[in-house]
Write a protein that binds this DNA or RNA. Structure first.
Lengths: 211, 211
DNA sequence: GTCTATATTAGGATAGAC
DNA sequence: GTCTATCCTAATATAGAC
């Protein structure tokens, strides 16, 4: 329950219906890295090709437009985190579910920082109708988070003077933006981030009453 | 102490030494709005000119390069929030200072959402040496936040089992990213956001012990 | 302070050979 | 699956008149 399962390499063409187009995974890795560093609009197809070690034109063997890369990354990001959080919640006992959700969300974020950062920050660069598709996937994920919190409220584990919707927004604020400052090479490992986020969100920062 | 003071209109050329270049405030407002909506790289000088109601070339009467706008917005954002939070903290009694900081930070964010969102999200598009300048201003602001929390720890108001640096990162996560979902037209007003953020950060989400 | 006109560079994307 | 060459559009920025 504490170990990060090795995220399975996505096999090409192992694509479920309604999912993102299959693309070579190294192309997605490279795109995520560049989009994160320079932004989607700030990344050129020349940079992408260079980072792949191929000519600019060869890129168009894999994609139709640059936006395909962004769309695929956004969909993959939401599918990944949705699956991982759902699995973690389902395998936990009800009183532990909020805690398990926090751990799974943080671990997914930190394991695939570039991809998730691109989803969070570059989503707005998508054009319709793919923009709407990704937004609705994101809203669905956020509803899942809210629903775990709402169950916690009904079970008496979570305070009820704040709406579950607002608790979900607060929790996602707290967890998501860790990608802005977290570095694997830094002083914290992912488990320490999980512990810290659980403490702040569940107990707050006032000193524990050791009365 | 609860009322938002009307942020003074910046008079043109009322620029303190070492500050951002003076630019017409409507140009900054328009830039902030477009940069937030489309990103810095995704916003064209044509869009900026059109939104100002002038021709594309006229823009260059006010600026040398598009980046001037981004730089000015970033500097202004950090100067504004630094001043407002400092003032709020100084006029509060020590036990209230963390609470006052949360209120001032959130109110500034929500009052100037576009400007602060651009600073948070588009900073990376600056080129050196202005990038380094803005980063060091941001780091200084974050140090101020950390230092208020560290004082709270020494005064016994804040738990000491998490380093003040990490508490600051957690708090800024929680507060900053509200700009992603907060809308003035929504169901929450700024004071309600302040209350909610204070509750989550200070007390956590477990039900209050009414033993 | 604004305009028309334009220079210049760089962008995404395609054609068609190998 | 990759290449060279190129198209076309749009970008930032400037020149110089009003």
């Amino acid at each position: 329950m504490e170990s990060q399962q090795p995220l399975p390499e996505q096999r090409e063409n192992a694509e479920p219906a309604g999912s993102a187009p299959a693309l070579p995974s190294d192309l997605l890795t490279v795109s995520a890295s560049l989009f994160r560093r320079h932004g989607y609009a700030g990344t050129t197809t020349r940079q992408l090709a260079a980072a792949m070690g191929i000519g600019k034109a060869s890129l168009y063997h894999y994609i139709d437009t640059k936006e395909d890369l962004l769309y695929t990354l956004c969909v993959r990001s939401l599918e990944t985190i949705t699956d991982q959080v759902r699995a973690a919640v389902e395998r936990s006992d009800p009183p532990e579910r909020v805690s398990a959700m926090i751990a799974a969300h943080v671990r997914s974020m930190l394991h695939d920082q570039d991809m998730h950062a691109v989803m969070l920050l570059e989503l707005r660069s998508l054009s319709r109708p793919r923009l709407d598709d990704v937004i609705s996937r994101r809203d669905r994920y956020e509803s899942n988070v809210e629903s775990v919190l709402a169950h916690g409220q009904r079970a008496g584990m979570i305070r009820t003077d704040i709406k579950s919707r607002h608790l979900a927004l607060g929790l996602l604020n707290l967890l998501n933006w860790t990608i802005f400052w977290y570095r694997l090479s830094g002083e914290l490992n992912p488990d320490e981030v999980v512990t810290m986020m659980r403490t702040i969100f569940l107990d707050g920062v006032r000193p524990p009453q050791t009365t």
